[in-house]
């Protein structure tokens, strides 16, 4: 890459910083590191990076408040690192503007995939109206879905849900986000709608609805639409 993306790592554990630095440098990213929230915020302000990897468990300040401060002006992607069994923390961070998350311990391959997705711009009706993968073709401008070149009939809600997923391909979307986008702000706790419509989309679009490849469950958090590997 001629102009490598600059990544700022904010993590208090020296081992984690080392591991992330080696992983990212090996993959041609340029890396800067901060060990505290204070240091991280100053570094981000002095020289805004293309992406921030933020650990939620920092010693000097709560990760959520760091994220909030960053999001007041910082618009590039933020990926958060958290410990397992803390879905609530993760959901809160995603709702507060984090682009994606990883739980420690994580596979570095996973980290790199999340980073690529976050750095890539979102799909929209204008810039990339047709998404296709394997036998599936989603045309956002024509509002059609084809499987093996055959038109798949979707209900209005099913299509709205699919379009929300397609525009955010590869990104984790929280239950609340999906419910708000597709059904409206009054429905953010009606997770049963989401369960039913995800099952319907899987039935119509997945090769094996019980072993989904496209609509992946992120347990306790939401769903991720995976269309490209």
């Amino acid at each position: 890459m001629s102009n490598p993306a600059e990544i700022l790592i904010i993590d208090d554990e020296v081992q984690m910083r080392k591991l992330l630095e080696i992983t990212l440098q090996t993959n041609d990213y340029s890396v800067s590191k901060a060990a505290t929230a204070k240091e991280g915020i100053i570094m981000a302000a002095n020289h805004p990076p293309d992406m921030i990897i933020l650990d939620l468990g920092l010693p000097d300040e709560d990760g959520h408040s760091v994220l909030q401060k960053l999001r007041e002006w910082y618009t590039n992607p933020v990926i958060i690192l958290s410990v397992l069994n803390n879905e609530e923390d993760i959901v809160n961070a995603l709702d507060a503007g984090a682009n994606d998350y990883l739980t420690k311990p994580f596979r570095t391959g996973e980290l790199l995939a999340r980073m690529r997705t976050a750095l890539r711009g979102a799909f929209t009706e204008e810039n990339n109206p047709v998404l296709s993968y394997n036998d599936l073709q989603i045309d956002l401008s024509a509002r059609t879905v084809k499987r093996n070149n055959e038109l798949i009939k979707l209900t209005a809600t099913e299509y709205a849900l699919l379009a929300t997923f397609a525009k955010n391909e590869g990104r984790v979307l929280t239950h609340q986000y999906l419910l708000r986008e597709v059904w409206g702000p009054g429905f953010i706790n009606q997770t049963q709608y989401l369960r039913v419509f995800i099952a319907q989309l899987r039935k119509k679009l997945e090769n094996d609805p019980n072993r989904p490849e496209y609509f992946v469950t992120e347990s306790g958090i939401g769903y991720r639409f995976v269309f490209k590997e």
């Binding site: 997770t191 049963q192 369960r195 995800i198 099952a199 019980n210 072993r211 469950t217 347990s219």
Partner: peptide, 12 residues
């Protein structure tokens, strides 16, 4: 407590 699709849970 939240709504669970048992089929999804078991297959996952």
């Amino acid at each position: 407590k939240d709504w669970c699709d048992i089929i999804e849970v078991i297959y996952d």
